[in-house]
């Protein structure tokens, strides 16, 4: 059986028309995913840009175009987790001199929930964003984040516990 070897696209090989269509269709929800995971607009923009760069150069690797949305969500989620990891490493070495607009400020409709979300770990926020924001089932979320289903369920349960506790404390 013949198999297609995935290859990296360069220069004019990238189907910019297809990328533009995907950007228009999935851009907002993917940026929201990056924002939820990183908790900061600056990091979200970095992760979002890096994810699209990565996606564009690996565009041909996706054999089933109908899975484009979940494939992009996976790319963005992992990019955001990577960015967050780098940010934490950087923050340990360099004290911050300014704070970019955080999730709490961006969620003007529910700032207390935005602030409470920052109490979660990066992975927990990724699970919450993919499950509640994108509507993926927990099994699908596990597949997107490349972790076990049990881990995702555990992340979600702990996320809800932390959110309830934080919101309860704040609203008391």
């Amino acid at each position: 059986m013949a198999t297609t070897v995935p290859h990296r696209l360069t220069g004019s090989q990238i189907p910019t028309d297809e990328v533009d269509v995907a950007l228009a269709e999935f851009g907002p929800e993917l940026f929201g995913l990056a924002l939820t995971i990183t908790g900061s607009t600056a990091d979200a923009e970095d992760a979002y840009q890096a994810a699209w760069m990565q996606a564009a150069t690996h565009w041909a690797e996706l054999r089933n175009p109908r899975k484009r949305r979940s494939w992009l969500a996976s790319v963005v989620a992992r990019s955001a987790l990577r960015t967050r990891r780098r940010r934490l490493t950087w923050a340990r070495r360099h004290p911050p001199i300014s704070e970019a607009q955080g999730l709490g400020a961006m969620m003007v409709w529910d700032p207390s929930l935005g602030t409470a979300l920052l109490e979660l770990t990066d992975r927990q926020r990724a699970v919450v964003a993919l499950h509640y924001g994108h509507g993926y089932s927990l099994d699908e979320t596990a597949e997107l984040l490349r972790c076990s289903k049990g881990t995702v369920r555990s992340h979600l349960a702990r996320s809800l516990t932390t959110l309830r506790r934080t919101l309860h404390d704040d609203e008391d």
Partner: peptide, 9 residues
């Protein structure tokens, strides 16, 4: 809330 986050510009 999360649905609204996913609609940000």
């Amino acid at each position: 809330s999360m649905r609204r986050v996913m609609q940000l510009q």
